[in-house]
Nucleic acid binder design. Sequence first.
DNA 1: CACACTTATTCAAATAGTTCAGTAGCCAGA
DNA 2: TCTGGCTACTGAACTATTTGAATAAGTGTG
Lengths: 196, 196
Amino acid sequence: MSLKYAVLAALLEGEASGYELSKVFDVSLANFWPATPQQLYRELERLAGDGLIEARTVPQERRPTKRMFSLTAAGREQLAAFAAEPTRRPTAVRDEFLIKMQAMDGVDPRAVRALVEERRAWALGKLARYERVRERLLDGRTEEEYLRDADRVGPYLTLLAGITFERDNARWCERVLTVLGERRAAAGPAGPAALG
Amino acid sequence: MSLKYAVLAALLEGEASGYELSKVFDVSLANFWPATPQQLYRELERLAGDGLIEARTVPQERRPTKRMFSLTAAGREQLAAFAAEPTRRPTAVRDEFLIKMQAMDGVDPRAVRALVEERRAWALGKLARYERVRERLLDGRTEEEYLRDADRVGPYLTLLAGITFERDNARWCERVLTVLGERRAAAGPAGPAALG
DNA sequence: CACACTTATTCAAATAGTTCAGTAGCCAGA
DNA sequence: TCTGGCTACTGAACTATTTGAATAAGTGTG
């Protein structure tokens, strides 16, 4: 149900095609509402049918024809109404990696280290992408200036949430690597006894 | 697919009934893999059918009969194998509230404040619950002692991730309230002009 | 010029997750 | 005694999400 509003919110940034939206949902919006291209195309169809967005066919040279979608007045209204309502569903995090971490005791510590290092690298990569988006939004201004003067602060604030999230992910990984190292040291140079 | 392993990981803590698991998935495990009671009962049935867990019927006085589930050797093995494999799916966060925040500009600031305050209270409540679980796990030891000496550190480390997450949520809310306050002040005592 | 990759979208099928309701006995408060 | 809530579970229907593939043209690399 919320994908609908996620799409409308994404279109606040301006007209976009399904393909462009799928890119947006892969970077910034993926932070709090991931969606595959298939989901987006279906949702765009539905929203257009309900008159919340309107489609414009744009033939291109050397590229397939695309359809650009933009918010209608009705779409803006429904989005604003949704955004003012109390939140129904609490945050849901689904993280396969943390299931593995929950079960880490009983797994070869080298395998665990590898997983944690991979996760750390991934978090740092995502953080770097977020930081680039941030620089683009700030466009030379300081954060303070931006938050005081900008027309829209929503996208910047949600981006900050994503930045904090990934930074913490990376830090958590570093903490785990330290803990694993200390436990190995404590267990003696022969390594831990328990692997089953 | 991962619900399977989340249930197996939850059973590492020892035998539990479907009902008890549904409580666990509502507090600590909800941190990274939420599941409704219905999902759990279905999954437990499947896992028992596959021989990864075994069921024991426990008749009770004054209470309905319950079925207690525990890991089999096969279940432990499959879980350990899963936990050693590279992570397939990145973290997926689904947060209706952040969609509302993305669209906050164009909504009555008083409504936004209310949402943010509600969210903050919710995060602090969850944080308090996590902290109680933490105290129980530590059982008088310091974190350093625990992480060095305990048999299993996985559940504690995932709990730490949850604590950081909720703490940051609360802090983010406070930041947003400050920003909103300063923007209102900057817009003048009459309040912001743009509401549509 | 073959190969892989990107833009741009659609279809079909499978899997996962949510919602609503129902059964059934017990306990506590008004 | 009625109401609501807790323990404990089950069933059916629904909605949402994921996966794989197909179409179709263009672009860059060796």
